[in-house]
Amino acid sequence: MKKKKFCIAMLSLFFTLLFAAPSFAASVNETEPNNSSSEAQLIQRNNEDPSKVVNGNRNGQYVAVGTFSDSNDEDWYKVYLPASDKTILGINTSKISVASDFDIYDENLNLVKSISYVKDPSYLGPTPYYIDIPNTGYYYIRVHSNASSGEYRFYIGGPDYSVDTYTYNATNALTITPTITSVQTTYDFSNIDSIPTEAIVYHVTLDGTRTNFPSSEERSIKLASDSSWITTPEYTYDTDVPVSSSKHLKNPWIFKLDGSVSKYTGSYKLVPQITFRYIYPVLPN
């Protein structure tokens, strides 16, 4: 019986550890009393690093989480912000069907902006709004609603980031012959509506459909405006791209195929399939 209990305990511990994945985002719960500017709860500005987000690390993400106890409840927060006309206030609520008001004040309690928030279904997560922060310093956020109860979440500062993929299937083959050992073609993704405007590539896979095989092969890609190539390792043909290099996906890209074949093996053809992994800031429409 003891052995059975021990096994059950170990299984329980295993599943606890399995599903207790570490959270890299900092969620700050509301602390009462925070019912006035003099009681405002100090929070940190959102400051995500996209080069870390692609690896699942959201150490710079700061989300305030609060609740309404009745229709007269209001909550105050205080945050230090740098001057910027592109400051983002991202808002989400749970089980609140009426509008929630978020008022931004400077440290002298002059109103900077007032937002009446209702969930925008075009955003899966928080709805972002631009806030023009005229001067570096402390600012107040006043949150109130006519809802009798419910939870809200918000961040303010830099944008939140999301990741996604885009795959392009070419229709024409690139051909290597005994006399042609390097070929290039350009693919223009500038007008692909499904790709966010600010999408930055952080990984690329240069796959495709082959006809025949070369004795050696190299697949590379670059922005048409760049001088240097992103070269992928042979056989895997995929590689990371530093986020800091700011390779915007919505541009013309040049694909290059290098290789060699003999007159006995015949031509080698590749119909490229290109997969980009990208990260983008979630910005207001």
Rank of each mutant, 00 (worst) to 15 (best):
254 I>G: 00
7 C>L: 13
152 Y>I: 01
87 T>N: 04
110 N>P: 10
155 Y>F: 15
244 S>H: 02
100 S>P: 00
65 V>D: 14
122 S>P: 05
11 L>H: 00
273 Q>S: 10
105 Y>I: 08
95 K>M: 13
224 A>Q: 12
110 N>T: 08
236 T>Q: 14
192 I>H: 01
79 V>G: 08
167 T>Q: 02
149 S>M: 07
148 S>I: 05
130 Y>N: 09
68 F>L: 04
152 Y>G: 02
124 L>D: 13
139 Y>P: 02
165 T>P: 01
130 Y>K: 06
271 V>D: 12
217 E>C: 14
136 T>Q: 07
27 S>M: 09
273 Q>P: 06
90 G>T: 10
222 K>I: 11
69 S>F: 03
261 V>F: 13
135 N>R: 14
20 A>W: 15
63 V>E: 13
47 N>F: 10
141 I>G: 11
92 N>K: 13
95 K>A: 14
20 A>K: 07
103 D>F: 03
13 L>Q: 06
12 S>Q: 08
3 K>V: 08
270 L>H: 09
107 E>M: 09
169 N>C: 02
30 E>C: 08
9 A>G: 08
26 A>Q: 11
200 I>K: 08
216 S>M: 06
244 S>D: 14
169 N>M: 05
90 G>M: 04
246 S>D: 07
42 L>N: 13
283 L>D: 04
53 V>C: 08
16 T>L: 15
265 T>R: 08
68 F>V: 05
241 V>W: 10
194 S>T: 14
272 P>A: 02
53 V>H: 13
41 Q>M: 15
120 D>I: 06
190 S>I: 01
275 T>A: 10
55 N>V: 03
193 D>I: 11
115 I>F: 02
113 K>N: 06
195 I>V: 09
44 Q>G: 05
53 V>M: 05
171 T>P: 00
151 E>L: 09
99 A>F: 03
238 D>A: 08
155 Y>Q: 05
149 S>C: 05
156 I>C: 04
84 S>V: 09
133 I>R: 03
207 D>T: 11
36 S>F: 07
78 K>C: 13
149 S>I: 00
225 S>A: 15
76 W>E: 10
186 T>Y: 00
270 L>C: 08
71 S>L: 08
188 D>V: 05
33 P>F: 06
232 T>R: 14
72 N>Q: 09
163 V>P: 00
21 A>E: 12
100 S>I: 12
173 A>M: 03
220 S>T: 12
72 N>Y: 12
4 K>F: 14
104 I>R: 12
135 N>V: 12
100 S>C: 15
76 W>N: 08
274 I>L: 05
110 N>L: 07
143 V>H: 11
230 I>T: 11
89 L>D: 04
154 F>C: 01
105 Y>E: 06
92 N>H: 07
133 I>C: 01
231 T>Y: 14
226 D>L: 01
54 V>T: 13
167 T>C: 00
62 Y>I: 07
50 P>I: 00
171 T>H: 01
240 D>R: 14
227 S>Y: 04
196 P>E: 01
104 I>T: 04
263 K>Y: 11
278 Y>Q: 06
107 E>A: 13
227 S>L: 13
205 T>L: 10
222 K>W: 09
253 W>V: 00
6 F>G: 02
277 R>D: 15
258 D>C: 10
67 T>F: 12
89 L>F: 05
127 T>A: 02
150 G>L: 04
230 I>Y: 11
176 I>K: 10
158 G>P: 02
201 V>Q: 12
33 P>M: 07
5 K>G: 03
202 Y>F: 15
273 Q>H: 05
94 S>F: 13
127 T>Q: 02
